[in-house]
Design a protein around this nucleic acid. Structure first.
Length: 858
RNA sequence: GCCCGGGUAGGCAAACUGGUAAAGCCCGCGGCCUUAAAAGCCGCUGCCCGCAAGGGCGUUGCGGGUUCGAGUCCCGCCCCGGGCACCA
């Protein structure tokens, strides 16, 4: 072989890894398990198999694989599994269009993914592979559902839901973006349906508190989840409609502004509207308003620019702090799904209430003012051109009865305490987070293991009858209810409880349910007793490094966190958090734009690998730029990386030829633990500086240090690869001068083997090939090299001499000189002297090991 | 509007705690090799003077500030990307 043939090399090493099952990792207690090694669980978000994998997948798995390889060679027992998130809408939509059953389409895609993942040389433990659409897997998804049901964490409720008229299904809040369906973009509609929910809100506080348990998550992802949970503290205060004797609790974060409440507002969906308006003579006006606002899309309703609308109900409620009767309105700026669907309006201190008050000519009463204003006896009472949404620390109450003069912060608790005594209010916490709606009126998902019996009601399917298998159907098109409803023999079932006639639940689960626990099934994929064994989970969990796209920052990651907490509460495992460290990769673009088939700017990972090989493709996606940021795909850039790998390959060939493949090993003092040059005091070049090759050894050790730090400190893969490029470039520059000299040959062999060793996490086939050519050893069985510190230390350094902060000279000087000596050397420089001429040195700055700065005047 | 990122050669980017700005890759230019081309190898690639050694100047979105010294810290803006947004 006289040129770099990536495909030949890659096929050969992949065959070794497959045959020897190199990347399989046993569980504790199984043969081959090594309990002397610390565990490391690394996994990437599992793919949704659709078509064939793209460059985004290539990047995702290349990053994870590099981490896995590094950790293995650092002495960890690494588990690195893979699976498929195979249920979901795209396969079903495809089925509706083409008639191809979703199972067939998905399994064809899975085959394509498997083929690619193998061709990419990823170090997955294939013995742990799972797919969420198989009965062996979803049996346990159903089992988990039943456990949550038993604990009251899964419940059925009628609720206004968001309905996508195109996909014909209910959507979770998280799947509605600006009032539109996340998938198809059509405006969503409101409907009332009986649906299944997971009570994630019960875990809201723990989801917030346990951010503290995380080792390394991107700050912005934590922030996004915090905002999504949207915890706010305040009070629940009861306003009573005396006329009808109905109590309206409202949530407020500003109990200190209660005396400024001048009206009261209900959401158009509020259930008490009808009773309230009855007999007031305003029925027509109100019902017209309600109809109109319910017809509007949530998007239209949410527009901030829009003027406030509403209608008076002709009734009043009593403000519990001062007994004042204030009018009730209905207005669409009040959301039924937040708080109690009702609010006290304080126009002087809330922008929205202010806008409404202006539109309806309602009184605006300031009750909180900055202390300075209060002392000047200004600001209180009516008026003001804009609301004062207090955000200074020093505000006081005015015109607030007994609380007048009190600071706003104390007033909050004082007012709550006073209300509490009278049973009219108490401290309260509210969340933006809603319970997780998991029902889908769709075919291609995990069946919900529930039966409806006329006599017994909601009956869970007993564990021994699991899985409830997804039946075959003819027609996948949704008709407002699940296609499963058409499978009559499947639907009609004997009640597990009374044996009478009953019907199965025909909705399926949101696919986020499947993907909220798959990383636990990886740990014990063939267990037929339970989803996973506790002792196995306690050994491997939590995941030490999770890698995926930032687009899952909220949904998937929070659902999985919720599941783990619920599991821990059920005693299924110890871990409270699934993902100790999270890395979110940025998207690869083309010409600065997202890749999409409609733009015609997609880059096929498959074709890139066919053309350049897996090593080039993998190294390139890691070299694109900081991986969290994403980068622009550039065909010429791929060429550049390919050139680099080719150079390394050729260097390996040439060094083997020119230095003889004799005893002068590159790695190879046999039986040694570490790279021999790294630890061996007899390393050539160490003792005598003039020996050629020392610089190259120093460079190689510098590269070891740099690559290790860059990978471990925040995924700086692009600079790590650049360091190996430098090492290879230096080897090329020096090699002709070094050949023939024993130390020179040894240095070249070491440098080349080191380059192969360091590039291995990114280009595993080439790394193995070159390393084996030089050493006869398998690089993945060698420990990750450690830099020899003594070779990193230089005995001279470049002293930069500045005059007034401008560089005037640089001198090579010995390390360890005193400040006085450095100054003397600096002043001796011709060019420096020229700049000092006729001037007075007023200050001398010496930074040891770095520079001297002479500050002059005149 | 609010909260995060980011703005550095022609392009992508690097620069740990303030200490020679621009490593590496691409593009471009030149040389070697070749009958020739491709590939490969070597070199150049902010501006000015110089054959050269060298010297001078400039420079990190804009404007200020702190410092002997600022891409890095502080204040005020502009632009790009992402997230949230009538959440009481």
């Amino acid at each position: 072989m006289d040129r770099y043939e990536p495909h030949e090399i890659e096929r050969r090493w992949q065959a070794v890894w497959a045959e020897e099952r190199t990347w399989e990792t046993p569980n504790p207690g199984e043969p081959g398990f090594d309990d002397s090694k610390p565990k490391f669980y690394v996994t990437e978000m599992l793919p949704y198999p659709s078509g064939e994998p793209h460059v985004g997948h290539l990047k995702n798995y290349s990053l994870g694989d590099a981490i896995a390889h590094l950790r293995r060679r650092k002495g960890y027992q690494v588990i690195h599994p893979i699976g498929y998130d195979a249920f979901g809408l795209p396969a079903e939509n495809n089925a509706i269009k083409t008639g191809q059953p979703p199972r067939e389409a998905v399994e064809a895609s899975i085959a394509a993914y498997q083929e690619q993942f193998r061709a990419w040389g990823l170090s997955f433990d294939w013995s742990r592979e799972v797919s969420s659409h198989t009965p062996e897997y979803y049996r346990w998804t159903q089992w988990i559902f039943l456990r949550l049901f038993e604990r009251g964490l899964a419940y059925r409720a009628e609720a206004p839901v968001q309905w996508c008229p195109v996909d014909q299904t209910v959507l979770a809040n998280e799947q509605v973006i600006d009032g539109r369906c996340e998938r198809c973009g059509s405006p969503v509609e409101a409907r009332d349906l009986e649906q299944w929910f997971f009570r994630i809100t019960e875990y809201a506080d723990r989801l917030l508190a346990d951010f503290d348990l995380l080792e390394s998550w991107p700050e912005h992802v934590v922030t996004m989840q915090r905002n999504w949970i949207g915890r706010s503290e305040g009070a629940e205060v009861t306003f009573r409609c005396e006329g009808l004797g109905i109590d309206f609790p409202v949530f407020t974060t500003r109990p200190d502004t209660l005396f400024g409440a001048t009206f009261f507002v209900l959401a158009p969906e509020h259930p008490e509207l009808g009773r309230l308006v009855a007999g007031t003579g305003r029925e027509d006006e109100v019902s017209a308003y309600v109809d109109e606002s319910i017809r509007e899309t949530p998007e239209e309703r949410a527009s901030e620019e829009r003027a406030k609308t509403g209608a008076p109900l002709g009734r009043t409620v009593t403000n519990p702090v001062n007994g004042e009767r204030i009018p009730i309105f209905v207005a669409d700026y009040v959301l039924m799904e937040y708080g109690t669907g009702a609010l006290m309006a304080v126009p002087a201190h809330d922008q929205r209430d202010f806008d409404f008050a202006r539109a309806f000519d309602l009184p605006i009463r300031r009750v909180v003012v900055p202390r300075a204003e209060a002392e000047a006896a200004e600001g209180a009472g009516e008026g003001a051109d804009e609301p004062f949404v207090g955000h200074t620390d020093d505000e006081v109450l005015v015109e607030s009865g007994e609380f007048t003069g009190m600071g706003s912060v104390e007033a909050k608790s004082a007012i709550i305490a006073s209300l509490r005594e009278r049973g009219l209010g108490e401290p309260a916490v509210n969340y933006r987070l809603r319970d997780w709606l998991l029902s889908r009126q769709r075919y291609w998902g995990c069946p919900i293991p529930i039966v409806y019996c006329e006599r017994c009601g909601i009956v869970p399917v007993p564990d021994e009858q699991l899985p409830v298998e997804l039946p075959e159907v003819e027609d996948y098109a949704p008709k407002g209810k699940s296609p499963l409803a058409a499978a009559e023999q499947w639907v009609e079932v004997a009640c597990p409880s009374c044996g009478g006639a009953a019907r199965r639940e025909t909705d399926t689960m949101d696919t986020f349910v499947d993907s909220s626990w798959y990383f636990l099934r990886y740990l014990d994929p063939h267990n037929v007793e339970r989803p996973f064994d506790r002792s196995v989970a306690d050994h491997w969990m939590p995941i030490d490094q999770y890698i995926g796209g930032v687009e899952h920052a909220i949904l998937h990651l929070m659902y999985a966190r919720f599941f783990i907490k619920a599991f821990a509460d059920m005693g299924m495992l110890e871990a409270q958090e699934p993902f100790a460290s999270l890395f979110t990769q940025g998207m690869i673009t083309m010409g600065g734009a997202k890749m999409s088939s409609s733009r015609g700017n997609t880059v096929s990972a498959v074709r890139t690998v066919e053309r350049y090989g897996a090593d080039t493709s993998r190294t390139y996606v890691c070299f694109l730029g900081p991986p969290e940021r994403g980068g622009d795909w550039h065909p010429d850039g791929v060429e550049g990386v390919h050139r680099f790998l080719t150079r390394l390959w050729r260097l390996g060939q040439e060094v083997v030829e020119r230095t003889g493949d004799s005893a002068v090993g590159a790695s190879a003092t046999p039986g040694r633990e570490a790279e021999p040059w790294a630890a061996d005091p007899d390393t050539p070049g160490r003792e005598a500086e003039e020996v050629s090759g020392r610089n190259l050894l120093a460079k190689a050790n510098w590269a070891i240090d740099k690559v290790t730090r860059d990978i471990e400190h925040g995924f700086q893969f692009h600079t790590a690869i650049a360091a190996v490029m430098e090492l290879v470039n230096d080897s090329y520059r020096l090699k002709d001068a070094l050949y023939g000299d024993p130390d020179g040959d040894a240095a070249l062999r070491f440098a080349t083997a080191t380059a192969a060793s360091l590039i291995f996490p990114f280009a595993p086939h080439l790394g193995s090939e070159v390393y084996a050519a030089l050493t006869g050893e398998r690089v993945w069985e060698r420990p990750w090299p450690e830099a020899d510190r003594s070779l990193l230390e230089r005995d001279t350094f470049t002293l930069v001499v500045q005059v007034n902060g401008r560089r005037r000279d640089q001198i090579e000087v010995a390390t360890g000189l005193s400040e006085a000596e450095l100054l003397e050397l600096a002043r001796a420089s011709d060019n420096v002297r020229r700049h000092l001429d006729g001037k007075q040195v007023v200050k001398e700055v010496v930074v040891p090991g770095k520079l001297v700065n002479l500050v002059v005047r005149g």
